[in-house]
Every structure is written in structure tokens, then in C-alpha cells.
């Protein structure tokens, strides 16, 4: 564990806390893509199948359980909580996310480290995570303005990805056999998807104005 990896995990955790806070405090999920949240739930369940087969550390197990539980809880709230579900921007959240699931799974069948069920689901989760933010970014683009908590949620998610890239560079330089091409290439793609959002986030931060995305 290096400092970049820890910072990445913490900003990831923080992003989820911000999202839970928004939903809990405002009883609203406006501006949040349910499709992106469903994709994250699929990502975590598919990736952490090793919870039952490999023990790495208490920290690792704890974080995995937190990510699975929180992503399922968010999806549950958006689908079934009587007040939260009413605020869902259904008509703006029209990205065909099943297409992303299919494409990611097809890619995992072709590109994986080993041809085993666990490894294919792991690769699938990496590919799906890389593109899971797309429905969310499309929803923001359509709605135009972004409330503070939603903006911070996406900012922390992007920061998590950026820290993971620093972590891989650090590991590549310090560990003799660190090569994880599937995760690293997908991670760079995933982070690149945030570039546009980050640009407008920093502009609004610098001008001390409300975050707005161009139509």
C-alpha cells in the first residue's frame, strides 16, 4: 500500500459518502444517473467474487464489503425509496447502459489474464468500470446545471481514478514485476473520460461560480 493508492481508496470512499449524504439529506437523487449506479453495483459484485476465495487483508475485505453494500443501497434507494425515487430524472437518464455491459463482457471474453470464471468476471468489471460514468456524464450534460453535492461526488470519483494512475506509476517504478496492463490501460481510459468534467469543475471553482456544463 502506498500513499497514492490510499488516497485513491479514500477519495473513492469519500465520493460514495458524498452521494449517500446527498440522497439522505435532500431525500433526492436528482442529477444522479441510476444507470451509472447500477453499473457500479454490477462492477463491484463481479470484481469481488474473490471475497470467498482469497483473503488479502482486513482492510481489503472491509472495503470490498463497503463498496458492494453501498452501491446496492444506492440503487435500492433510487428504485424503491418512496421519496427518493420521485426525484429521479428518468427522462434525462436514457443512455443504453446494457450495451456497455454486453460490450464489456464480450471484451473480457477476448482479453483476460486467465480463462477462468473469476478472471473473466474480473476483467469484465475493469472494462465496465472504465465506461460506467458515461450515463452520469450524459445526464449532467443534458440537465445543464449541477448541484454542489453532485459536482463533488463526480470530482471525488475522478480524483480516485487519478490517484490510482499515480499508484500504478509508483508501483511500476518500485516493484520489479508490476505489470497489470488490463487494469492500467482501462484506468487511463476511465480517467480520460473525466477530463472534460474536470475542466469545467476547475473553471467554476476558480471563478467561484456554480458549476455549469455547456449544452
Amino acid at each position: 500500500m502506498n500513499i497514492f493508492r490510499l488516497a485513491g481508496d479514500m477519495t473513492h470512499l469519500l465520493s460514495i459518502l458524498v452521494l449517500l449524504l446527498k440522497i439522505y439529506a435532500t431525500k433526492s437523487c436528482s442529477g444522479i444517473s441510476r444507470k451509472t449506479q447500477e453499473l457500479y453495483a454490477i462492477v463491484f459484485v463481479a470484481r469481488y467474487l474473490d471475497l470467498f476465495t482469497d483473503f488479502i487483508s482486513v482492510y481489503n475485505t472491509f472495503m470490498k464489503v463497503v463498496f458492494i453494500a453501498s452501491s446496492l443501497a444506492i440503487v435500492w434507494c433510487m428504485r424503491f425509496h418512496p421519496m427518493v425515487r420521485r426525484s429521479y430524472d428518468r427522462e434525462l437518464d436514457t443512455f443504453r447502459h446494457y450495451f456497455l455491459v454486453g460490450a464489456s463482457f464480450a471484451l473480457a471474453l477476448i482479453l483476460h489474464e486467465k480463462f477462468t470464471v473469476q478472471e473473466i468476471f474480473w476483467a469484465f468489471s475493469i472494462y465496465l468500470e472504465a465506461v460506467a460514468i458515461l450515463p452520469q456524464l450524459v445526464l449532467l450534460q443534458r440537465s445543464g446545471n449541477v448541484d454542489n453535492l453532485t459536482g463533488q461526488y463526480i470530482f471525488f470519483l475522478g480524483a480516485y481514478r487519478a490517484f490510482y494512475i499515480l499508484n500504478w506509476i509508483y508501483r511500476y517504478l518500485t516493484e520489479p514485476h508490476f505489470t497489470r496492463w488490463i487494469a492500467c490501460v482501462s484506468g487511463v481510459v476511465q480517467t480520460a473520460l473525466y477530463a472534460d468534467f474536470f475542466y469545467y469543475y476547475f473553471i467554476s471553482w476558480k471563478n467561484n461560480s456554480k458549476l455549469k456544463l455547456p449544452a
Partner: peptide, 10 residues
């Protein structure tokens, strides 16, 4: 040389 296959990242 054994390849590391343990997924230690989240």
C-alpha cells in the same frame, strides 16, 4: 519466476 496473480487492489 512466479507471476503475481493476487488482486490486491480494489
Amino acid at each position: 519466476d512466479q507471476q503475481e496473480s493476487v488482486k490486491d487492489e480494489l
